[in-house]
Amino acid sequence: MEPLSNRKKNVAQKEMTLSERMYLPAIAQGLGITLKHFFKKKATINYPEETRQRSEIWRGLHVLKRDENGAERCTACGLCAVACPAEAITMTAGERKAGEEHLYREEKYAVTYEVNMLRCIFCGLCEEACPKAAIFLQDDKLAPARYERDEFIYGKDRLVEPLKTTETK
């Protein structure tokens, strides 16, 4: 077929030369390459003892952030649930009562907030959708493997960032 463009470059096969026909030179060459690698430094990372550096924007396990005073940022607007293509987020909203200002930043808050980690595809759309900087996908944590299905419904107890005081424990 005549060319459709002027950028054609034929890479088609060349005839084998005599030395190529004899198998051995190419085999020796291949053996040389593998032997070179035999003595090379190994690329393996000894997980779990060593962990590989992940990028700072890696989309790992979710966290519900607190603000600088330790109050929960989430205001249960539901945008993350709408944005979730896997429909993995569910929540129920509640009104903040008097005296709870140190717990919840806004007047509305999420009474329950559940992420189904099995459904979740870690696409980051919830993080992008959140207008309150409440939900983030951490780069330093991965969702661990577990034995039971129920253990993957992450409620607020596992999602909300621990308070600074508990962190020091």
């Binding site: 950028r7 034929n10 088609a12 096969q13």
Partner: peptide, 9 residues
């Protein structure tokens, strides 16, 4: 600038 590699068979 790039070329389109083509084969024959």
């Amino acid at each position: 600038e790039f070329e389109i590699p083509v084969g024959e068979k």
